[in-house]
């Protein structure tokens, strides 16, 4: 910075004119974090594999071939076949579509709900805050897994069509995830509201809308991005657990969870590892990669940290 900043002319600046952008700065720092980049690469790879891969497969996920039951990996079936002679690789890719979609969609829904309700509760306070947060507390006091089991069991009892179950699973996962997010966003709101720049906004006589969308939300967005990313991993994991217990997405629609469930006996476990290792590894790799990427994002998006 030049020592005297009293440049009298408005035009003809001497220093570079490039707009400084928080996004570009963050991106640059993110690219320095090798682990986060690797995590992102794995996530990207899984997405490409699952959404584009099936087009190159000669098999379909539900094509039963009795002649090829329980075959070990070979040249025709790279990852072997299952008890009904279906190609494991194709099924893993197809299952990934479902699992990743469920993860993404439930993340979007729970982040939307959580951010909206948390922001409203934190900004306006009072009765609205009480109502929203007590509902959130109620949902958080019940451990989420048993809650999901009860919902899943009810769905099975009501004989919901298998096609719709995927969407209902998304809704269920968002319902158990939004309270944590809402609480986090509300906490941020409460602390931001008392910051001096918000006092400045009051003195300047800014409108509520600008205070909320111009000053408060931009400070929460980084947190939301990080939470959203980490949330996808959690949602994928929850969906897999539910499907593993036969309460999530129902076979024959493959998901990573119910594919592992299909190998849920000692014989398959010991003799036919190709049945459960590929879906298991997919869950493992995806969730770990998402979490590593999310951690990297968190490091980068902390606004107090600068370089």
């Amino acid at each position: 910075m030049a020592a005297d900043s009293r440049v009298s002319e408005i035009t003809a600046p001497r220093v570079n004119l490039r707009k400084s952008s928080l996004f570009r700065q963050s991106l640059r720092r993110l690219l320095h974090n090798k682990l986060a980049v690797a995590g992102f690469a794995v996530v990207l790879f899984m997405f490409v594999l699952c959404f584009i891969g099936p087009f190159f497969s000669p098999y379909t996920d539900n094509k039963i071939n009795m002649a090829m039951m329980n075959k070990a990996p070979n040249l025709q079936h790279w990852l072997g076949t299952d008890a009904l002679g279906r190609d494991i690789l194709t099924r893993v890719m197809q299952a990934g579509r479902i699992s990743l979609t469920v993860g993404l969609a439930s993340m979007v829904l729970s982040v939307f709900l959580g951010a909206l309700l948390g922001a409203v509760a934190g900004y306006y306070g009072g009765l609205l805050d009480q109502i929203i947060m007590r509902i959130a507390d109620l949902l958080m006091t019940i451990p989420s897994l048993p809650l999901l089991f009860i919902f899943g069991a009810l769905l099975s009892e009501w004989k919901i069509k298998a096609d719709y179950r995927m969407y209902i699973v998304m809704l269920m996962l968002s319902m158990v995830n939004w309270p944590g997010l809402a609480r986090m966003v509300r906490g941020q709101m409460l602390s931001l509201r008392e910051r001096e720049f918000m006092q400045a906004a009051v003195v300047l006589g800014l409108r509520d809308r600008r205070k909320l969308f111009g000053h408060l939300l931009p400070n929460i967005v980084p947190l939301l991005i990080v939470m959203a990313t980490l949330n996808i991993g959690g949602a994928i994991l929850s969906e897999s657990v539910l499907s593993f217990f036969g309460l999530g997405v129902m076979p024959p629609t493959p998901t990573w969870g119910n594919m592992i469930d299909a190998a849920n006996n000692i014989l398959d476990f010991q003799e036919r590892p190709w049945l459960w290792i590929p879906p298991g590894l997919s869950i493992f790799a995806t969730v770990i990669a998402i979490n590593i990427f999310g951690d990297g994002l968190r490091d980068v998006l902390d606004p107090k940290q600068k370089r």
């Binding site: 928080l22 001096e196 111009g214 000053h215 931009p218 400070n219 606004p303």
Partner: peptide, 8 residues
């Protein structure tokens, strides 16, 4: 330092 919003 605190009177300016870091994201504006």
């Amino acid at each position: 330092y605190s009177a300016l919003n870091p994201r504006v």
